[in-house]
Design a protein around this nucleic acid. Structure first.
Lengths: 179, 179
DNA sequence: CAGAACTTTCAGAATTGATTGAAAGCATGT
DNA sequence: ACATGCTTTCAATCAATTCTGAAAGTTCTG
């Protein structure tokens, strides 16, 4: 059994590492992504100490990261009867996970950026030079696409999973060369 | 005029800063995003020296970053008759820009990740423990969603802009409460 | 209330990633 | 061949982010 156990552990560690790497390149702290991967693939909720041990990280780091995951809505804390320790479990449904991340990032990053861009646009509304015209028109295009994208994302992430899957399949079917 | 000039410059600098910040939180080097913003809103192509001067960055940094932008397909170099200097201009079409970024990131990040995840999945195929079952099923769900997402993205970014805009509007119309 | 169990905080250390600038490397024209 | 104008490279430096661990804080239990 220990062979199998080891192979399993290895695969899981590989997943945790990969998820961590993906996180980094998507603006999510590596450790946070790793802790998430751990909880996400864990049978049962884990305590801070278990997370520390599995990932070889400090108590402070584990604590902060778990809080942050709860803040994102990607994990929640679980208290077992008769135990004082706090345990954590991840959102296990992949579609819901995706929606949470997408909406949260939009709210934190895209929405404020759109506002700033609007302000930039207002600031040059009175300028008549060719330079200003180029700038204005580019800015308008960007804003338009961002706002459209935002609304689409809002719709997609607030629909039920099954309807969205059907929609995806339709897009795949319809996108090909025309009849 | 110098008042107007200053206000324009200010707005443009704000845009460059914002674009840089957005870049950082989307895994794109801040400077690269800034140089892109500069070219993207510039009337004419710019030389390395002009980029250096506008953004107050070193020659090495400017050169590397411009190369990288060309590598991504977000900028191209332009040579003017009778001049030895190289100038750079950005892709100005926002939709095409979006498609380039989306496809390139998929190719560089998502595709390799999917492969790794596949390998993780294979590695645990023979395991029968409850732990392994949880792990396997979570991994399967993630892979499925990533692959579906990838195919959808591929379709969307290879269609013509107008068709995609129509699609977007349809999604917005259809997503509401059912009749 | 005292002590044990557990959690939070945060100043400094460590790590990672970005930037500089000067030297080396081309072309081109004379 | 040499000088000139421009580009590329890369070791050293700098900046930003992340992590640690010990101390302080909180909550529970007997």
């Amino acid at each position: 059994m220990s062979d199998k156990e080891d192979a399993f552990t290895g695969a899981r560690d590989a997943f945790i590492a990969e998820w961590g790497a993906m996180g980094s390149s998507w603006g999510i702290n590596r450790t946070m992504a790793q802790v998430h991967a751990l909880l996400f693939t864990s049978e049962d909720p884990l305590s801070t100490d278990e997370v520390m041990a599995e990932l070889r990280i400090s108590r402070g780091n584990a604590n902060t990261t778990l809080r942050e995951l709860v803040g994102w809505g990607l994990a929640r804390s679980v208290i077992r009867k008769g135990e004082r320790k706090e345990y954590f479990e991840a959102e296990k449904d992949v579609w819901r996970m995706f929606c949470i991340i997408a909406r949260e990032r939009k709210r934190r990053e895209a929405d404020p950026a759109v506002e700033t861009l609007q302000r930039c646009l207002n600031a040059v509304s009175g300028h008549r030079s060719a330079q200003a015209a180029t700038f204005r028109s580019q800015l308008e295009s960007v804003l338009e696409l961002m706002q459209l994208g935002g609304r689409v994302l809002e719709r997609i992430t607030s629909g039920e999973r099954d309807r969205m899957m059907k929609l995806a399949l339709k897009v795949l079917g319809a996108g090909g060369p025309r009849p």
